[in-house]
Design a protein around this nucleic acid. Structure first.
Lengths: 233, 233
DNA sequence: TTCTGTCAACTAACATGTCAGTTGAAAAAT
DNA sequence: ATTTTTCAACTGACATGTTAGTTGACAGAA
């Protein structure tokens, strides 16, 4: 198994705060962006020399990432980016579904004009760009859509929690991106959700969100076959 | 603000695995059991000398706990057990509700005799002990009840995730324990949930679980007034 | 060829040394 | 008496030294 390319780590010198936190952010971002691929070895020493610092903050960062399940540490042996797993992603999708459905339920029960405006604007952007969107922009606007709904609940820990349980889902989604036509489908699903919210139809909103969230795990098996190296046994 | 009493840390020498992991478990358990009270200072040096080891594994453990929000680290100054907050516990309850409701929904849609047997047996134990239960036993059987439902979904990450988002809720629950009559009420609520599951009545099961989970945040404000030191501003 | 035992190189874990930022109490000024 | 300043002690952050466990290449036996 190859080593992770430390050159893809975004630099750390220009920020402030504890070094360990910055290393944590840099490595986490690299993993979620698939710059560090699942299964690749993370050489602490390479990270240290590349970023120009000692082992302490790097170890601290990897230890935390290990707690989140993004890194597997094999004592006295090595550290690797955790592999994807069909079973684990199904489980994460279950958790994500529970939280997204609860959020859209709450949002529908407490609609405001500001919320609907923000959702309409977001979908407007998605429609404009449907033909010419690059991967990062697509992910950003899709993410923003869900974030608007989460924020509207005023449960500040909801969004971070969804992100936390969706980390493997997010990595898988990045692999799925190139699929033809999926983009327009996504926008349509988003529109359905907004329509249900606007109608104050809780059941419809929950069902639309459920269908939307279940799209990814449904496409998972062919993905695992296409990228066997990135998935565990 | 007083220091946390390191004597309450369970010893670490008799287990195996990395020292840092054992320290992590010991400190986390002390915090969740309220042996380390919210707001108390955790002196790394005390922990080190008490457990007889160096600063590395202790720092690693506290760093991870800081990531989970159980410990606040003030750089160059000190580390403290994070305080409770009414707002944060309400948010955690929202997340917990979302997951518990999704779990009971799934459980009700996939009932098995084994599951119902396990639930009946659990409630049997609770009924027997309702008069003479100590705090730890009560928490253990209550926890076991919810665990049975979670396990039945075969979503292995569900239970750990619920535990993760319920950490502050759990600490608050320990403060609420002494309240008279709450024990019998809890058993009644559990029984209602089981009855709904047995009837394959998804909507009733969801509603019973929702009511049950919402009991704690409803009792929160007087709690915060009773223990102002343990709550943040 | 295939299996097995050996061992050197590499890794994370842990210990320890050093430093800079924070703090709170004493000292000084008002 | 009250506020301000000073400063020594303490803390976590980080660097570095050391150790023990793991691994994979290689030599030798079958």
């Amino acid at each position: 198994m190859p080593d992770a390319d430390v050159n893809k780590l975004k630099d750390v010198k220009e920020l402030d705060g504890p070094l360990a936190d910055r290393v944590y952010d840099a490595v986490k971002s690299a993993i979620l962006r698939l710059d560090f691929l699942p299964g690749e070895t993370i050489r602490k020493s390479s990270v240290c020399t590349h970023l120009g610092l000692s082992r302490s903050p790097v170890s601290d960062a990897l230890s935390r990432l290990s707690g989140e399940g993004l890194v597997d540490i094999y004592p006295q042996s090595g550290s690797r980016v955790s592999r994807l797993s069909v079973a684990a992603i199904h489980e994460d999708s279950f958790l994500r579904e529970a939280l997204e459905v609860a959020a859209v339920r709450h949002a529908t029960e407490h609609v405001t004009d500001a919320m609907l405006d923000a959702l309409d604007r977001n979908i407007g952007v998605q429609l404009e760009m449907v033909e010419e969107m690059d991967d990062d922009t697509f992910i950003a606007t899709d993410t923003a859509f869900h974030e608007i709904i989460m924020q509207s609940t005023n449960v500040s820990r909801l969004w971070p929690t969804v992100r936390a349980v969706s980390q493997n889902v997010d990595r898988a989604r990045r692999l799925l991106l190139p699929e033809e036509g999926r983009l327009a489908e996504t926008v349509a699903e988003h529109s359905e959700i907004v329509a249900a919210i606007r109608n104050r139809d809780v059941a419809a909103a929950e069902e639309a969100m459920r269908r939307h969230v279940r799209e990814l795990p449904a496409r998972l098996v062919p993905l695992a076959e296409a990228y066997p190296d990135l998935f565990s046994s």
